[in-house]
């Protein structure tokens, strides 16, 4: 039972990182990524390959995962972030499909069978295989992500980002380099997703393309919307809720996606600010009408 709760806590931590990173894109760049699971997957596979095939130590593999996922985010963001929000949504969705196909077709990724036997992280000779230790590792990473994003959000750059989200043209007129900001946020978010991917791979020790498909992207999106777009603390809550609640309703597993779809539409209509919308982190921009 304790093991099960520890498992849930670790997964919730990984989802928190994913949710916060997607929330940066949605709540602060005013864009939506539907291929977020692809960055997550890139992180997982890069880290796995670095550890298994090249024998690199975990910290190096982790950094590689972040960098490569971030680089993919940069490459994808450069052409598309100058355009309207809908384009990025489709492009990221397409990117998700492409990454999925690549993972399925390459030899090195093991195709649909995936890769197993991923080693647990080792820091200074200490193995983090045991669940309590792994939870501490994940907790530290969550803390790192939180501190990073909160500092960003509350900095001068955070204000610039909010200005972009609320009124891009005005922000531009005020001298904010909006495309550069959006690209930076998108790159950072992709990198964080890569971090989450690495944590996932070394925890579960087996990965295949299925985990990194549209289903996961939508799940993370639901977590963001539930917590509240633009609310970092909300993301925490959204991620934990949607990790735990489905476990309570395991019997209704088949209805999970149906529920996420309905949840998204219903939330946006009746409570677009999400769970934590009432607080000071709420975003007026979402409910603003013409």
């Amino acid at each position: 039972m304790t093991a099960y709760i520890l498992h849930l806590a670790i997964m919730a931590g990984i989802y928190i990182i994913l949710t916060i990173s997607l929330n940066l894109i949605i709540g602060y760049a005013g864009q939506v990524s539907l291929g977020h699971a692809a960055f997550y997957g890139i992180g997982a596979y890069v880290s796995t390959l670095a550890a298994l095939n090249w024998g690199l130590p975990f910290p190096v593999a982790l950094v590689l995962a972040i960098l490569l996922a971030g680089a993919c985010g940069l490459a994808l963001g450069l052409p598309t972030l100058r355009l309207k929000e809908d384009y990025l949504a489709i492009v990221t969705l397409g990117f998700g499909v492409i990454v999925d196909l690549i993972l399925l077709n390459l030899d090195i990724t093991g195709g649909p069978d995936g890769i197993g036997g991923i080693p647990a992280p080792v820091f200074f000779g200490v193995s983090f295989r045991a669940k309590p230790l792994y939870l501490i590792l994940v907790g530290l990473m969550v803390l790192f992500t939180l501190v990073l994003t909160l500092r960003l959000v509350h900095s001068y750059h955070g204000r610039a980002l909010r200005a972009i989200r609320d009124h891009e043209v005005t922000a531009q007129v005020m001298g904010v380099n909006t495309p550069a900001y959006k690209i930076a946020v998108f790159t950072l978010a992709a990198g964080l997703a890569g971090l989450a991917g690495s944590l996932y791979a070394h925890y579960i020790s087996f990965i295949n393309p299925e985990t990194f498909g549209l289903h996961t992207s939508i799940l993370v999106l639901s977590m963001v919307i539930l917590g509240g777009m633009g609310s970092i603390v909300g993301s925490l809550l959204g991620a934990v809720t949607l990790t735990v609640v489905p476990e309570l309703f395991r019997r209704f597993h088949d209805y999970q996606d149906l529920a996420y779809g309905a949840l998204l539409v219903a939330l946006l209509i009746w409570r677009p600010q999400g769970l934590l919308g009432g607080g000071k982190m709420s975003l007026k921009f979402i409910t603003r009408r013409e």
Partner: peptide, 28 residues
């Protein structure tokens, strides 16, 4: 329709939700 006039992200995400909903409904 209930979302007309909101930030463009909002109907976009609602559409995604509707898409997932219909797909899983058909699956069921």
């Amino acid at each position: 329709r209930p979302l007309r006039g909101a930030h463009p992200l909002v109907p976009l995400i609602s559409a995604i939700g509707a898409s997932i909903f219909l797909q899983s409904l058909a699956l069921l």
